[in-house]
Each structure stands twice: as structure tokens, then as C-alpha cells.
Amino acid sequence: MALIQIRHAIRDAIAEEMARDERVFLMGEEVGHYNGAYKCSEGLLERFGERRVLDTPIAETGFAGVGIGAAMCGLRPIVEFMTFNFSAVAFDQILNNAAKIRHMTNGQFSVPIVFRGPNAAAHMLGSTHSQAFEPFYAHVPGLIVIAVATAYDAKGLLKSAIRDENPVVFLESELMYSVKGEVPEEEYLIPIGKADIKRPGKDVTVITWGQGVPVALRSAELAAAEGIDAEVIDLRTLRPMDTEAVLTSVRKTNRAVVLFHGWPYGGVGCEVIAQIQEQAFDDLDAPVLRVCYEDVPMPYAENLENLVLPTAERGLAAIRAVTYRR
């Protein structure tokens, strides 16, 4: 096992897949000569050259579309958005082309492409640069949506995403790029669509993903200090969702909290809760609660941002509430 940063796990996954498959290439703003705005592609230009590591102008619709077109021809593009906030510019390409082409052509074409980059709030970037995009993409049939929180998951899932025949939206975290984790020396893949129990427990299930994972784990630690044993489930894939993993846990604990970075209204958290109440209503001993952003655009000021973000303390409060301990 090697202890590496998430940014390097991402870089290594890309490098291994590029070495393995000539069809794989990387493009995006500053991915080449600059080695990535967040250094997730360090050394890739040097190793693979300008044919396969392409710096693009600031033209998200353009390069997302070029990626989709190339994927329809059998190439396997990895498109980096400097942050997912800028994917909004390319939304039509993802929504109406990447997600629809297989269906629209009755299977004549598929779109094996990965759109990746950091998602959700970092620190004091203001409302336009702090948004969580999973609700927009997870809403769409025809897309796969992944959110990773550890180096191990990042590498294994990115490799699977690159090999997948479908368009994959792959959400990373600026705040977590430097977080280190153990990654095996030998090759491995993590299947898409499988959640992971990040912390086993018996009293309450905390469902989370992406940047929410470390927060949920800290909440669980705080809860443990009060004698509450929380199980933390990292969904890892948001679409398709590993509903079985969630239900299995909830049937055991009878209580659930969904903790994530993002707005509450109409988000992935709502889908988790809908699945639980549809399929495990009788197992529930308390309403399922959400811990997430407050329903406001992200303010810049540090004190306000801290109030809007989900914290371990807010996670603990929800855990206490669903276990009826105050």
C-alpha cells in the first residue's frame, strides 16, 4: 500500500488508463502545461504528449461537445472541468447530447466519456463558485454520477468510469485533493453502483458522499463519545444508487440521517429519503433528517459560510434527534 493524495490517485488512474488504452485522452483548461489547476494531471503532458493531453481554451460547451463527438467515434475522452461550476456552461451538451444519444439513436451510438472535476464549496469562493452539481446531473436518466471521498475510491472508481460505455459525471473535491489515503500498488477497480460502509455501527445510519464523508465521520466520532454508534455509508455512486446498501443498514439501525454538501431542495438527499420511506417505512423509528447547506446561495463572508455549511456538530445534532437523545 502507498499513502497518496487524492489528486495523485486521480492522476494515477488517468495515467494507467491512458497507458492501457490508446483511445483515452484528457482535455480541459490548464490540464497540460499548467499540470492542472489543482494539479490532478501533474506530469501527464510530459508523459503522453500534446496529442493526448490537450489544453483547451475557456470554452466548456465546445470541449464538452468535442468530447461527446469523439466518444461517439469510439474514443474515450476524459473532460476536466476546472470546477463543476463551469460545467453549467456545458449543461446542454451533457443533458441533451451525452445523456440522450444512446437512447435517441436506438443504441447505434454510445458516449463513453468522463466529465470530472471538483464539486461543491471550497473556502470563501462566493455564490457562483461554491455549488454542488449532483442534483442537476443525478436527475438525468442516461448519466452515471459518482462522487468520491478517498484516494482508494477515487482511483478505483475513476478507472471504472473511464472503461464504462456510458457518460459518467465524476465529482471530486477541491478541499480534499490533498487528503491522503492508502492505495494498493497492484491494479484494482471498484464497481460503479456500490456503496461503501466507511464506519460500521448499529444505532443510526448516516448516508453521505463526496465532501460530506469526512464531516459524517466526524459526526459519528462525536456521537460515539455520547454512546451512539453510527454507521456511515458512503454512496460513492449517486446514480445508479446502491439502495440495497442503504436499506440493509436502515433495517438494522431503524434511523437515518443524510449528510451532504449541497442544497436541500430537490437534491440527492431527497431521493435517498424517498427510497427509505418507500421501502423501509415500517423499519423507521424516527423521521429521516437531512444535514446539508442551508437553502441559500453561498455567501462569501467566512462567518456566514460556516453557518451555511454542514458541520460535524450539525451532523451530531441530527444523530441525537433521530435517536431521541438531546
Binding site: 475557456i58 462566493g126 455564490s127 457562483t128 462569501y300
Partner: peptide
């Protein structure tokens, strides 16, 4: 304090932004 460096607006002084998404 809502916008920070990237989102300067001062209508009174004819500065109408302050836009941080390139080109929008």
C-alpha cells in the same frame, strides 16, 4: 461581504459587476 473579490458591484459608482463565470 456576500460577494468577495470576484463579485464587486457598486451601482452608485456605475460598476455593474463583478462576474466570475467567464464570459457570462
Amino acid at each position: 461581504g456576500i460577494g468577495g473579490s470576484m463579485h464587486f458591484f457598486d451601482r452608485k459608482h456605475q460598476l455593474w459587476g463583478g462576474y466570475a463565470i467567464v464570459g457570462n
